[in-house]
Simulated assay, not measured.
Amino acid sequence: MLHHKTALRLAAPMAVLALTLTACGGGGDKADAKSPDTARAKASPSPSAASGGEMGTGEAATGKFKEDPGVVTYGIVAQKVVLGTEADAAKAVADAKNAKGKVLATAQVRFTHKGGPTLTDSPDVNDGTEVYADGVPGAILIGADESAVAGCEDPYDVESWKQGGSHVFCETYLVPVDAKSVEVHWAEEDGAPYVWKFPGK
């Protein structure tokens, strides 16, 4: 079964702005199946004492994620966030006015397969990645072309992923141009997020 975000990526032929953000403490949202252009940002994960916390620069977290062959243990580290321009943001969305005062923020996260079955299909572990700005969730771009950002790999190109192997996957969000800090969050399905902070513009 495809994960929610993966299905949205397949449904959206071009990048579209996730206009509706999830309020703090809200439950999970589902995009309108009849209108993929109204896709929503992912809900914040439920707190869990077993995981999560602020990470130092270059510090790796360990988390488990359910893939198609079974549960895989990953080492996760947010390497950096690549910030674009307001002009880039305006070109990336269906309606440029929705990107006013915003820039693209592409999080680059390195995942290392540490335990569990070999993946023979596209991994979904990057579904746990979110981008925040000054503590507020950004708006995810469904169908963003992350291949244009150096260092980003396409999960659909991963055909066999064994223990010890690493890949860098990216997620692109819209964040305010004047954000002082940008945070990359990654969480297990029911866990609190690990958080890596990076400077804004």
Rank of each mutant, 00 (worst) to 15 (best):
Lys30His: 09
Pro199Ile: 08
Val136Phe: 07
Gly128Trp: 00
Thr129Cys: 11
Gly75His: 00
Pro193Gly: 12
Val109Gln: 03
Tyr132Gly: 01
Lys180Met: 06
Ala133Pro: 01
Gly56Tyr: 02
Thr38Val: 06
Leu83Asp: 08
Val93Gln: 10
Gly135Arg: 06
Met55Arg: 13
Trp196Lys: 08
Ala12Ile: 02
Gly70Val: 11
Glu171Gln: 14
Ala11Ile: 05
Pro47Ala: 13
Ala148Trp: 03
Phe65Ile: 11
Thr120Trp: 05
Thr112Arg: 01
Gly84Trp: 06
Met14Cys: 08
His3Gln: 14
Ala41Met: 08
Ser166Gly: 02
Ala107Val: 08
Arg9Ser: 03
Ala133Met: 00
Pro137Glu: 07
Leu8Lys: 04
Ala144Tyr: 08
Lys162Tyr: 04
Glu130Ile: 07
Ala50His: 12
Cys152Ala: 13
Asp121Asn: 13
Ala94Asp: 15
Arg40Leu: 05
His3Pro: 11
Ala41Cys: 03
Gly52Val: 10
Thr106Tyr: 07
Glu54Asp: 15
Val72Thr: 07
Gly165Thr: 08
Val82Gly: 09
Lys5Ala: 12
Pro36Thr: 07
Val158Phe: 02
Leu104Lys: 02
Ala107Ile: 09
Ala31Cys: 10
Thr20His: 10
Thr112Trp: 01
Arg9Ala: 06
Phe169Ile: 02
Ala150Phe: 03
Pro137Asp: 04
Arg40Phe: 01
Glu159Ser: 15
Asp127Ser: 03
Lys5Asp: 14
Gly200Phe: 03
Cys170Asn: 11
Asp88Cys: 00
Asp121Glu: 15
Pro69Phe: 09
Met55Ile: 05
Lys91Gly: 03
Ala41Thr: 14
Val77His: 07
Val82Cys: 07
Gly200Trp: 02
Ala33Pro: 07
Gln79Asp: 15
Pro117Ser: 05
Ala11Tyr: 02
Tyr132Pro: 00
Ala23Asn: 12
Glu86Gly: 02
Ala150Arg: 04
Phe169Gln: 02
Ala150His: 10
Trp186Ser: 03
Ala133Glu: 01
Val177Thr: 07
Ala33Leu: 01
Lys97Tyr: 05
Met1Gln: 13
Lys100Glu: 15
